[in-house]
Each structure stands twice: as C-alpha cells, then as structure tokens.
Nucleic acid binder design. Structure first.
Length: 1006
RNA sequence: GCUGAAGUGGUGGAAUUGGUAGACACGUUGGACUUAAAAUCCAAUGUCCAUUAGGACGUACGGGUUCAAGUCCCGUCUUCAGUACCA
C-alpha cells in the first residue's frame, strides 16, 4: 500500500472539521492553555510559504499541549480592515467588503489545506460590524475615562467632574494636556457647557487635539514618516506639507511607566523588550527654570526657560543655553542686533526636512540670540543660542548646555568659541567631553564640590526646589498616539458633533456601521472619504443614521468623518476569541470566559510589530483592567518572533551590447545605443564575458549579436555600419523559481511554455555550458516582482501538507531568517515515505505484538526525551532531525513492535498530523490521535554499561576506546596507557599528565 | 552613533553544561536495479598533503584563559534588524 498523501490529508481535514476535533471548551477540568498567532491581513495575493511558518510552529505547540492534557484554545481570524483593499477599491470601484470577503475565502482554503488545529468556531474579523461594535465601545470607554496619577489607574470621567465641582482642578493629579489652566470649583460651575467639555477633553484618555501631520494634498491623506521619501510621497511622488489637523489621539503616555515596568513580568525576548524600552525612553533627571535677563526688546515681560536635564549635578558647568529654532521664546528674546541672523537661521531650519536634519549630523550650526539667562545659583549671565541639534518635539525644546559633560554641547562650544568650564575633579577635557557618570567627583561647583554623581544630583535638586527654580522630574520619549485616519475602510468613530464638541453614541445603538460611498477617495474639499456619504448624520431622537440633508444642528448632527487606524481592532481581539460565538451579542466576552482564559500563554508573530501592535495592545489591556472590564495586566505572557522565510531568486543572463550608428534600410532611421539581444548564456559563460576571458567564445557571441541586429533591422549583409558592436555586457533577468531544479539548472522548455512570460522567451537562444543552462541565484525577500514567491498550494499538491509542515520546521531555528529552497523538500518527503513503510508493507500492516528489543526501546526513549525538550524550547528544526534518526534506526533494527511504533506516532503527530492519524487508525484505534497522552520518557532504557571514550593527545582526538562505565579514574588510565595505540602515539615519551573525565573523555598531555 | 541578533563544508543547518566539530538533510560523485526513465537502495563527500598507513590545517579575524574553546574573556571586522542630534 502506497503513501497516498493527497487522499489521506483530505480525509483527515474533513474528519477534523466534521467532528470539531479542536473545539476548545470554556468549561473544563483540564488546565487551560491559550496559543495565539498574530492574525493575518487577508491580502489579494494569498499566502506564500513564508506566511505559515509561525502558524505551523504554534500549531505544533498547541497539539503538543493537548497531548500533555491541556484544554487548548488555538483560534484564528482576520485583521480585515486595511489599506490594500481600499487602494484596490479606489482603482477598481469594487467595494472593499467584497474583495476582503474573497481574499478571506482564499486564505481559509489555503490554511485548511495545511491541517491546522484551529478552533474556527471562534473566528473573528475586525471589519465585521458585530466585532467593531465592541472596538467602538472600547473607544467610548476611553473617552469616558481619565488617568489618576495618585492611584495610578484610569477612572471614570464622572469622578473627575465631581472633584471639579467640589474643589476645581488645583488638587487633581491627573494625566492631561500641557496647557491646562487652574480653576476653582466656582469657576467650574460658572463655565458654559462647551467650556466644560473643552476642559474635559484635555483629561480624557482619548481626546481631540491639533496635531502636526504630513499632509499630502494630492492623495488627500496623511502619510507616516516612512511613506515619505525625499520630501515627496513614496507612492506617486507628490509633495508633502506639514499641516495642523484636529485628530483623535490616545493618551498612551499616561501609561508610560506601567508599560515599562510591565516588561519585567512577561517572557518576551530581550531584543523585543529592549526596543519597547527604547521606544518608551524613560530618563530621570530634573526640570530647571532659567530666568531670562530682560533686554530692551523684552523688558515689559519676564521670560523663563524651562529645560529638562538628566544631569542636574552638572548645573555649575552650564556655559550656554540652546533653544530649538522653533521654540516659542526665540522671537521674543532675540535682540535687535541679532534679529536678522536669527530669523535667517530659523527660516533655513524650517525648510530642511527632518530627514535632512537627521542625515547631516556632522555639521554644527547655530546662532546667538543676543539674550542672556541668569544662572539659578551663581546669578551669572548665560548666553542663549539657538541650534537645530535641539529638537522642538523632545522635552521642552531647550537644553542647558554643559560642554564639559556632553559631547554635542562640547562640539558646539568649540565651534563657536564658547568657554568650556571644567567641573570634574582631575579630568582632562582638552580633547573631548567627559560623558560618564561614574568614577568622577564634582569640582568648581559650590555646594556640590567633592560629591559623586548620585549625591550631587540629589543635592542639586534639593537646592533647586528650595529656591523654587526646579524639581526632580522623569521624562518619557513616548508620544501620545494619533488615532484618526482619513480613510474609508476602517472602524467609524461612534461620534457626532454638537457645537463642535464630540458626543458619544450610546452603547445600545452600536454598531455604527460604515456608510456607502460612491467613491473611496477624499472629497474635493480634502475631507476624508466618509465626507462623500449622503446618509451620514445622527438623529438624536430616533438614534439612527439619517440623510445629511436633515442636519439642523438641533436634534440631527453631523457624524465624524475619520475612521480608526489598523491597530484599533487588533488591540483587543485576543479577548474576543475567549468567548464562544453564541454569547458574543451582549458583551465582548463574558466574565466567565475572561476569568477562565485570562491571557495568551503563547503568542507567535513577526518582530515588525514590536513598537506598534504589541505596545498598543498592552496599553488597551491595562486600561481595560483599570476600568474592571478584564482582570489581567498584560495580554501576552510569552512571545516568540518567527523569522522571515526569504526567497531564493533565480535569474538568467541576457547579453547586451552597445551599437554604433547605422541606417536601417526599412525605416531609414539611425539607430544607436543599447541593444538587448535574445541571447542568454549559462552562468559560467556569463562570468567569461564579464571578466573578458575566453576570447574565442566572446567572438562567437559577437557574431550572433551581429546577425541578430541585422535581422532585426532588416539589413542586408553588405550594409555597413561603423565598427558595429562594442561593450558586450550581461543583464540579470529574474525568472520564476519553479523552472529551476536543485542543481540550479533551468527548465528551458517549461520557461518557454509559461503562460505569463513564455512568449518573452519564444525566440530566445540559450547558450548552454556542458549541455546545461545554469542560472544565478540570490537570496532576497519573497516578492512578486522577484518571481521568487513559492505558493504552498503547489507544495501541498506535489508533496503534501505534512511534508510542507516538516520542511518549514526543518529549515532552521524558528526565530532566524532563512532562505527557502523547494528542492530540499525531497528530504523530508522521503522521510515520510520511510515512516509509512515502517508501518505498512506491500501486503498490509507490519506492526505486531512482538516484545520490543533493547535497541528499539533505546531509540524510542531517546527520541521521546529529545522531542519533548525540543518542543519546550521551541527548537522544532532539531526534532525533525531526531525523527529522521529514529526512523532510520528502527528501519535498520527491522522493528515491528507495537510497543515502539505506537508511541512514536504520537511523538510525530504534532508535526505531521495527517499521516499520524491515518497510521493510528490503521493500528486499530477509533479516537483521534490528537487526544492521546504524550508518551512517558523512562531513563532506564538509556542506561549504558560502556562508553566509546575519545582518547586525545594534547587535546587532539586520535582514536577511541570502548570501556565499561563503572571503571574508576585510575582503572581507565591504566587501560588507556596499556593500549598499543597509546604507546604508538607517545612514541617513547612519558606523559606529563593524564586527564580522565569518566563518562566523557581521556586527555594525555606531554 | 546606540541597542539587539548573527558570522560553522558547495547549501540549509547540528553540537542544550567547555569534553570526538560538521548530526540530520539538500547537492555532487560513483555504484546497484531497469530496455530506458522515474522511484528506490548502497557507498563516498570540510580543505590540503600522501599510493596506502597516516599527517597538517580548520567554526569571520587577532590575542588570551584552560589538560581541553564553535562554546569563556579582551580587541577588531562584516552582515542583518530596530532606533536615531533624546538633553
């Protein structure tokens, strides 16, 4: 009986679906385990072999956990809002809902054929109104909350209003906008309703604010920094301008410290935690206030410069101040004499893009404002400069410059001949600044003299607080996140506007579904696509969406036109999976479900989400915990980043040449320049041409090119054209990798018959080397344009899903980037055939009830141990090797014993579930193998009585010796020294020392 | 620049605690079976020297610790990813 993988795999996939084999239970005596994949965006291109890598790994783990007696939740769904579908809609007019639906169908078919143990009954789609109803609901909860810094948690906004009513805002310690003004309880009560709403917006966890964005008028949209290349949009090359827009933002900065501290409690890779730490960017120091010494220009007003420093201990080293050119104070304090120069500099800076300023770190530039600030302690005047190395967007946009302790300040001071006072005891600063905090004592600093960094910092802050010119402060780099998108295909905000103030739609009227529009582009006025909807107004009487014509600003109001960003739906989806579909109407997940599943035990996905999805999810979960909606502080306990699978591109070498001018007899036109021929040479020949060696061969090519040019231009042989051809060279042309075999040979016939590009090669002349055409190869990202995309459908068809699963794991460590090469799959495929043969012979089953041999037991148990360790350590590649070794050994042992072969199948089943189920059934079982307990490892089968000792001389192994393991050190030494080969190696010398490590090695020195 | 990961045969990779470097595969070469091909099976396969026996070298590079280093320490280089004038 043959291993008919196509039939077997189909049979079991149907079986699992029909019997709901992998449905998770919300009530179970078993311990729970939640394995989650980052859900995919269903793109139009479908899956390539790189996509399932993480899914296969998590599936193996989920199946393993089931064998280990866990109630496993292993769901899957779609992050189905997103740009590509919208882009496609703009081009074709096709509604994104329809294309998304089609793409999901393709994804589902592709996922199903790989045999994942997903519980599809819990599928989610972020673009499904029943799902985004709850995304909108969470948004409303954020709107209805503020962050109380005293209790360090989010609280209902109503509690804040109570405080305002009782005592104003002077005592409140809450996360809020910077420009908050103090008011009393009486003030509060006197405010108009709109004023009150305006103030509350400054405290809400999601709020409307003016934000500077990269606005692209031509595309009618805001672009991210990385969508801008050289000041124009990446797509289309349109100009981009900085523009202020009112947008929804998320006050994630309120959670900065908790997001940072929480990292200590979760099992993520160090690199991932590190990038979140950097992103949050905590720095501890002090804020210091410098008073500006009044000049004629600024006499009527007194100005203060607020700076943040991490080194308050160096306060006596300040020799100048630097403001960002955009700083608000610049125009106010600049003296008449410096005005022209300062204005020119400010203007020049504004013109430079951020990228420009970034690229050019070497140039030191700046201008003196003419103004001076007063040192808080010495009262000395300090010159105030502006410089573009100070960023307006970080801290206060101003720094106190301490050239002796900071290299950038040092360079700036040197460049402009500003004094560099030394405040470090016994440190030479003639060449560079001393940036270290360690091993140094402060000098020339009044009350800080003789102190180290720690002591001096504490004292400096104390003194600053005493004179009211500073305080200890912690600064975070983390910015609040913009939450509005000028797009169609996203969640609508459940928001309408009354007197310009946002109002939330009540929960019971959700979801607010996307309106229909006739086009998916921004409006002519630059409004988002929802501005094109005719029926997009909110009737507060009927609580329904009504036609825009009815807007009267009394009971019928306009709705928000922006939509939510991609990360909205993905920031909480892991909770939705916990609830079964039947209970999802009334809540996002019931309390019971949330209490049972808690959070994700294992999360697998790409590292590109390090500072996006993975940070925002943590933020939302902490918020939801604060408000009592969930009871976990972190969403993902353990996280693994799978590496990318790269494509191995293949290319052919096409010959080109430059031609001199000649007249074509056909159209009398003069042709000159580059001529791409239809001559393709094999790899080594291409190297000959490029290195200009093998002149005989090059001459042959030359003749071919000449003939081709003549034919193409209909020139008769006697037509003369200059010296014809010069500069022969090679173009690399990518070809589809499926026409290349494991030895890099090209299937020319296949290429010519390709239904997409075959015609390009109809007249091509392939010049072979030793009868073969060898292609060049290159490892790069899998992409359509490189023709190196490998589709899992073809692999499943040709080798089967089990082969695909094994091979993806066999390629290398999960986290690593690694190239795909389809040719190598024959190795795991023939392993599966060997496995099959171990159980099934020509005329039926090979398995019987024979007593297992000692060798077979040893093979089995070392395999159990290795595979178990491997899975626990996510080292799936090495288990595949272990299976191969086990099957090779058992085949050699002619093992037919059920006592060996049954447990072996269970070991393999997480990796190759279809073949395992089939053979399991053949062995007479009716229950699915996925429910059978994992075999128990027993040490006793591995106990050896002897060991093949490597005998080394000065650390180099020369031969091995079989010795019993119960020998003492001395006995081993005696036996080794008595050996003929030892004597031969020593050649009469007496060894200085003999190292014996029992059970390991013998090393003879001398 | 900073942070993180990595560098081992022709290729993917293994060596989990310092103890026989290159497991397991792919590819290549030779052979068996076959009219032939496919499939399958067997053998060899780090480099160099040597007819063999055997020897020398070898885990990016240069040092060091150790009886023993791919593994530990110091320095250098390269690649990839993230981040960037962060006060």
């Amino acid at each position: 009986m043959k291993y008919n993988f196509n039939a077997i795999e189909k049979k079991w996939q149907d079986h699992w679906a029909k019997n709901q084999t992998f449905k998770a239970e919300n009530n179970s005596d078993k311990p729970k385990y939640y394995v989650l994949d980052m859900f995919p965006y269903p793109s139009g291109a479908g899956l390539h072999v790189g996509h399932p890598l993480g899914y296969i790994a998590s599936d193996i783990y989920a199946r393993y956990k089931r064998h280990k007696g866990f109630n496993v939740l292993h769901p899957q769904g779609y992050d189905s809002f997103g740009l590509p579908a919208e882009q496609y809609a703009i081009q074709t007019g096709q509604h994104p809902r329809i294309t998304t639906e089609e793409n999901i169908k393709t994804y589902r078919r592709q996922l199903d054929q790989i045999g994942f143990s997903f519980d599809w009954s819990r599928e989610v789609r972020t673009s499904d109104p029943q799902y985004y109803k709850w995304t909108q609901w969470i948004f409303i909860q954020l709107f209805e909350s503020y962050y109380c810094k005293d209790s360090d948690m989010a609280k209902p906004i109503s509690e804040l209003v109570e405080v305002f009513n009782a005592e104003g805002n002077t005592t409140i310690n809450a996360a809020c906008d910077d420009d908050i003004e103090e008011f009393s309880a009486d003030d509060w009560k006197a405010f108009s309703d709109v004023e009150k709403q305006e103030i509350l917006l400054k405290y809400r966890l999601t709020y409307l604010a003016e934000t500077e964005v990269n606005w692209c008028p031509a595309l009618g949209t805001v672009l991210a920094n990385d969508e801008i290349v050289n000041g124009v949009s990446e797509r289309g090359g349109h100009p981009v301008v900085r523009k202020k827009m009112t947008q929804w933002s998320m006050r994630i900065s309120a959670y900065a410290e908790r997001l940072l501290q929480g990292l200590e409690t979760i099992d993520w890779t160090d690199s991932l935690k590190e990038s979140q730490r950097n992103w949050i960017g905590k720095s501890v120091g002090a804020s210091v206030v410098f008073n500006v010494i009044p000049t004629e220009q600024s006499a009527e007003e007194s100005h203060k410069i607020d700076v943040f420093t991490t080194r308050p201990d160096t306060i006596f080293g300040v020799s100048f101040m630097t403001l960002a050119p955009e700083h608000g104070l610049v125009s106010k304090i600049t003296t008449e004499a410096q005005k022209a120069e300062v204005e020119a500099y400010v203007e020049a800076t504004a013109k430079r893009s951020e990228r420009d300023r970034m690229a050019d770190v070497k140039t030191i530039s700046g201008v003196f404002t003419g103004a001076y600030a007063e040192h808080p302690f010495t009262k000395e005047p300090i010159p105030i400069w502006i410089g573009d190395y100070v960023l307006a967007g970080y801290g206060t946009g101003a720094v106190m410059s301490v050239p002796c302790g900071d290299q950038r300040d040092y360079d700036f001071a040197k460049h402009f001949n500003i004094p560099i006072p030394n405040i470090f005891e016994g440190v030479d600063i003639s060449e560079e600044a001393y940036g270290s905090k360690d091993n140094v004592k402060i000098a020339n600093s009044d009350f800080l003299n003789g102190m180290n960094y720690k002591k001096a910092t504490k004292r400096a802050i104390y003194e600053l607080e005493k004179i009211g010119q500073g305080e200890g402060k912690t600064n975070y780099r983390l910015r609040n996140a913009v939450f509005s998108r000028q797009r169609y295909w996203g969640e609508p905000f459940p928001v309408y506007y009354v007197n310009g103030m946002p109002q939330m739609i009540d929960k019971k009227h959700l979801p607010l579904t996307l309106p229909e529009v006739e086009k998916y582009l921004p409006t002519e006025e630059g409004e988002p696509p929802l501005g094109r909807a005719d029926v997009w107004a909110w009737d507060t009487n009927t609580n329904t969406v009504v036609s825009n014509e009815k807007i009267d600003n009394k009971t019928i109001h306009s709705l928000e036109l922006n939509t939510m960003p991609g990360w909205a739906g993905s920031s909480w989806y892991f909770f939705r999976y916990m609830e079964e579909n039947v209970n999802r109407d009334e809540t996002f997940a019931t309390e019971d479900a949330l209490n049972y599943w808690e959070n994700v035990d294992l999360y697998i996905g790409g590292s590109e989400h390090a500072t996006g999805h993975l940070l925002y999810s943590r933020f939302w979960v902490k918020f939801m915990k604060d408000r009592g909606f969930v009871n976990v502080e972190e969403p993902f306990k353990k996280l693994i980043n799978q590496g990318m699978i790269l494509g191995t591109s293949a290319f052919v070498y096409r010959v080109y040449c430059h031609t001199s001018s000649f007249k074509s007899s056909k159209n009398k036109k003069t042709t000159k320049g580059l001529f791409s021929s239809s001559v393709y040479v094999s790899k080594t020949l291409a190297e000959h041409i490029e290195n200009n060696e093998n002149s005989e061969f090059i001459n042959e090519i030359y003749v071919k090119l000449l003939r081709e040019i003549r034919e193409e231009n209909k020139l008769s042989n006697d037509v003369k054209f200059g010296e014809e051809i010069f500069n022969i060279g090679i173009d690399k042309i990518n070809v589809k990798v499926k026409y290349v075999n494991a030895s890099d040979e090209l299937d020319i016939k296949g290429l010519r018959n390709d239904n997409e590009f075959g015609k390009d090669y109809k007249n091509a002349e392939f010049i072979l080397d030793k009868g073969l055409y060898t292609v060049g190869r290159d490892v790069e990202k899998m992409s359509k344009s490189k023709y190196n995309v490998v589709n899992p459908d073809e692999i499943c068809e040709q080798y089967g899903a089990d082969s695909l699963r094994l091979y993806e794991m066999f390629l290398g460590p999960l986290e690593q980037y690694k190239p795909w090469n389809t040719a190598g799959i024959t190795g795991v495929h023939s392993f599966l055939k060997k496995l099959w043969k171990l159980y099934v012979g020509q005329d039926g089953l090979n398995v019987n009830d024979d007593e297992p041999t000692k060798d077979s037991l040893k093979t089995l148990h070392k395999t159990i141990k290795k595979v178990e360790d491997d899975i626990e350590n996510f080292s799936f590649n090495t288990s595949v090797s272990t299976f191969m070794i086990a099957v090779n050994e058992l085949t050699a042992q002619k093992c037919t014993s059920k006592a060996i072969l049954e447990p072996l199948l269970i070991l393999i089943s997480p990796y190759a579930p279809h073949i395992a189920e089939e053979l399991w059934e053949k062995l007479g079982h009716t229950a699915s193998i996925s429910t059978i307990p994992f075999p128990k490892f027993d040490e006793k089968y591995l106990v050896e009585s002897s060991k093949e000792y490597p005998i080394s001389f000065n650390g180099k192994t020369r031969f091995t010796m079989e010795l019993p393991l119960d020998l003492s050190k001395d006995e081993i030494e005696k036996k080794v020294m008595a050996n003929e080969k030892t004597k031969a190696q020593l050649d009469g010398r007496t060894p200085k020392k003999v190292i014996v490590v029992p059970g390991k090695i013998v090393n003879i020195v001398g």
